[in-house]
Amino acid sequence: MSSELILMMIKGIGETLYMTLGSALFAYLLGLPLGVILIITDKDGICPHSKINSILGAIVNIVRSFPFIILLIAIIPFTRLIVGTSIGSTATMVPLIISAAPFIARLVESSLKEVDKGVIEAAQSMGASTMQIICKVLLPEAKPSLILGSAIATTTILGYTAMAGFTGGGGLGDIAIRYGFHKYQNDVMIITVILLVIIVQFLQEFGNRYAAHCDKRK
């Protein structure tokens, strides 16, 4: 393998990780509060509010039903507004964040749903406010499940970065498509795919272990 190729791979790994982790971080900044609001405003939640719940639920469902590639193109003007350009790794992160946030909101919602209602009731009986229940009961009690969810979210985002080629975002997925699919260089494609598999494995395994480490229920 030529040193040129190796350099390209290293750059690809860097771009992939940058886009994946960067997008995951920002998507969580949106998705986590969204998931919390969805769970507390549910009719069995600690702060039921059917209007807010159904509006947010509808928005989440609509955004989630958009095919990523269409979203990516449709929001190009918005991307330009935010990062000043519509091409490159950073620009690719905008559609990644927007499409991942509602998915993360649902993941967070389902993690928080696992928290025992009795424990929440106990906190209420001690005079805990809604904010205290969120910060001291819901999130800490659901921590292992939230971590597992974030491993799923991150690896899913990683899969979507393969489409970054369309916006010149680069990354391993882009290399695989350009070299393998368009130029029939199977060896390059196989190497990039193996690298992607390794990264996904690593992220997932790290998530599993960290979640197990945090979980005091066993």
Partner: peptide, 14 residues
Amino acid sequence: MGMIFQQFNLLLQR
């Protein structure tokens, strides 16, 4: 007003 429950309802991660 303290309260205790049949299922204890302790915080499992604490």
